[in-house]
């Protein structure tokens, strides 16, 4: 279900109070990922909602709860090794969560919430890609020329095999143009892996329906046709041969 900005505005109080059913909540979160105005309203409402529990008198739980909480946390450490992500800036966390969610095929709506506020720092972005593709391979493509500031990471997960590119800060292009993703072989041959149009979101996933294994590099160009060899401007290219 896709909601308009006005429809979402109408639901934001309910959203902030956790008073929407699951369907509405998901639809609002989808919209929030791409709408700064609505996110601002949610933040403001969130401040009000956060004040409501302050009206209650504190109450002491039973003494054994403290031990239970600590025991549960201790058991959690034993069960799950140190998390992949360490403490780091919030936006980076959002990206990481998002990538993990994408890789697992799930829809982490909660993580999407903060996506559009992401302004990716290249180095940190690289580190994240490296971590979330643990065991798999990845290439970072840096935007050049008029595409400076944009970029994308091709991630080839070891487990489920579906490779994809996570782009950030894609620039708009002419209406009759499209972005083309290319995989480059060791012998220098270019193979077109996907065509796509930029969404308005800060992050965009594009699937790569090819086995990435035999390629050593990747690139993105702007093309006017869906097929054929690369003709248009080079938008970004990987410098790194990922591990």
């Amino acid at each position: 279900m896709k909601l308009t900005h006005d429809q979402v505005q109408d639901l934001l109080e309910g959203y902030a109070l956790w008073a929407l059913d699951g369907t509405d909540r998901s639809a609002v979160e989808d919209h929030l990922a791409g709408c700064e105005a609505c996110r601002r309203t949610v933040r403001e409402l969130g401040d009000v909602v956060a004040a409501i529990p302050e009206t209650i008198v504190e109450r002491t739980p039973s003494a054994r709860l403290r031990d239970r909480v600590l025991a549960a946390a201790r058991a959690d450490v034993a069960r799950r090794p140190r998390p992949v992500m360490s403490f780091r800036p919030a936006w980076a966390v959002s990206v990481a969560l998002f990538v993990v969610a994408l890789a697992s095929g799930g829809l982490a709506l909660r993580a999407q919430l903060d996506l559009a506020s992401v302004r990716a720092d290249r180095d940190a972005y690289l580190a994240i890609a490296q971590k979330v593709s643990e065991g798999g391979r990845w290439w970072y493509m840096a935007g050049s020329g008029s595409f400076d500031g944009s970029g994308g990471t091709l991630i080839d997960p070891k487990k489920d095999g579906q490779a994809f590119v996570l782009f950030h800060d894609l620039k708009p292009i002419a209406p009759d143009a499209r972005y083309a993703v290319w995989l480059i072989r060791a012998d220098g041959g270019w193979v077109r892996a996907a065509n796509f149009w930029p969404s308005a979101d800060a992050l965009q996933r594009v699937d790569v329906p090819l086995a990435v294994g035999d390629f050593v590099q990747c690139a993105v160009t702007i093309e006017t046709r869906d097929s054929g060899s690369p003709q248009g401007d080079l938008a970004m290219q990987s410098r790194v041969f990922g591990q």
Partner: peptide, 21 residues
Amino acid sequence: ASRDLTSLGVLYDRYSRPMFA
């Protein structure tokens, strides 16, 4: 973030009462 149980215990002592309430 570094899995320190002492930190969790302090957070518990600080916020368990409003949370429980």
